[in-house]
Simulated scan of single mutants.
Amino acid sequence: MEIKFDGKRALVTGAGKGLGRAIAVKLAACGAKTVALSRTQDDLDSLKAECPAIETCLADLSDWTTARQTIQGLGHFDLLVNSAGVSRVGPFLETKEEDFDYVFNTNVKALYNVSQVVAKSMVEKKSGGAIVQLSSAASTQALKDHAVYCSTKGAVDSLTTVMALELGPHNIRTNCVNPTVTMTAMGVYAWSDPAKANPVLNRIPLGRFAEVEDVVNSVLFLLSDKASYLNGVTLPVEGGLLIG
């Protein structure tokens, strides 16, 4: 099944590393005029060297007003992938306000802000469009020491359904991809210890964690016209983890 985005303009947040970067590169390969947004210039420079067709944008999404102005200045988009995300790990009883604010400000507040700006342009221009959020299987599957992170992903899932409800009449589809542990460079580092990884792997019928391509392909499918009747979906990309 070939997916093409010729004539489409796409914005990917959190595109400097990991899944966001891989998504931006694949979108460009599929014909989309892609803008990659990151808060780290070195990451954007290396991405531009890897894929010269990608337009890059340096921005810190934690600043509500500045982020809005930056996104508005980039112009109209047909596709949006909210991939920017952070985490702070620790026991529920030891979570500090600064930890809570740091994770929620990026994973929920910034996502809300960016989506609002991009969707308003879609509505005003009557262009329709597609938005995909990078959520997580952790939105419904509790992870020890991840109380704040899990909470943000639950919020993303809920926000996605409301966006789907309100934006659907404007022919704007909003969906989520909810992967389990994914073998980005960070994922390999964080889950390389068998004592940590095996209890989770043993619950996955397919017997492996997600590869980057598993998630990227799911995102591209939901952005494409092949998924033109999918709206408000939370798509689990977790090898069957949640069925046990």
Rank of each mutant, 00 (worst) to 15 (best):
A36T: 00
T180E: 03
L74H: 14
N231H: 12
R39F: 10
K48M: 05
S87A: 12
G239E: 07
G128R: 11
A49T: 14
G244N: 14
E238L: 01
C51Y: 05
H170M: 06
V89F: 13
K226F: 11
C30M: 10
C57Q: 15
F221G: 05
P199I: 03
S136A: 09
I243A: 13
K4L: 11
P199C: 05
T184P: 00
L44D: 10
R203C: 00
L79T: 05
V233Q: 09
S38Y: 02
F92P: 03
N217W: 01
S87W: 09
V212Y: 00
T140F: 06
T66H: 15
Q141P: 01
E55N: 15
N231V: 06
V237E: 02
L143P: 02
S151L: 06
E2W: 08
D6C: 13
V215Q: 08
C150H: 09
K226V: 03
G244R: 12
G232M: 09
E55I: 13
Q69E: 15
V25L: 01
D63M: 14
N82R: 01
T66K: 15
T56R: 08
D157T: 00
A22D: 07
S46Q: 11
E98D: 14
G168L: 08
T40H: 15
A185L: 10
N107W: 03
D193W: 03
S224E: 06
W64Q: 15
T234G: 00
L79F: 10
D225N: 15
L206P: 04
L79E: 10
N105E: 13
T161S: 13
L201G: 03
A138Q: 07
N202F: 01
D145V: 07
P194G: 04
A49M: 14
A190H: 11
K26W: 01
A190R: 13
L11A: 05
M183N: 13
G16Y: 00
G168K: 12
A15W: 02
T234C: 05
T160K: 02
V81I: 00
M163L: 14
L222P: 04
K196D: 06
I243R: 12
T140E: 10
V114R: 01
K125T: 08
T70W: 10
L167Q: 09
A36K: 00
A227L: 03
F77R: 07
S151I: 04
K120S: 14
R9S: 13
E211R: 12
G31F: 11
L206D: 04
R173A: 09
V177M: 03
E97I: 01
E50W: 00
M186N: 09
F92T: 15
T140C: 05
A22T: 02
D157G: 04
M122A: 09
Q69C: 10
A24H: 00
L111W: 07
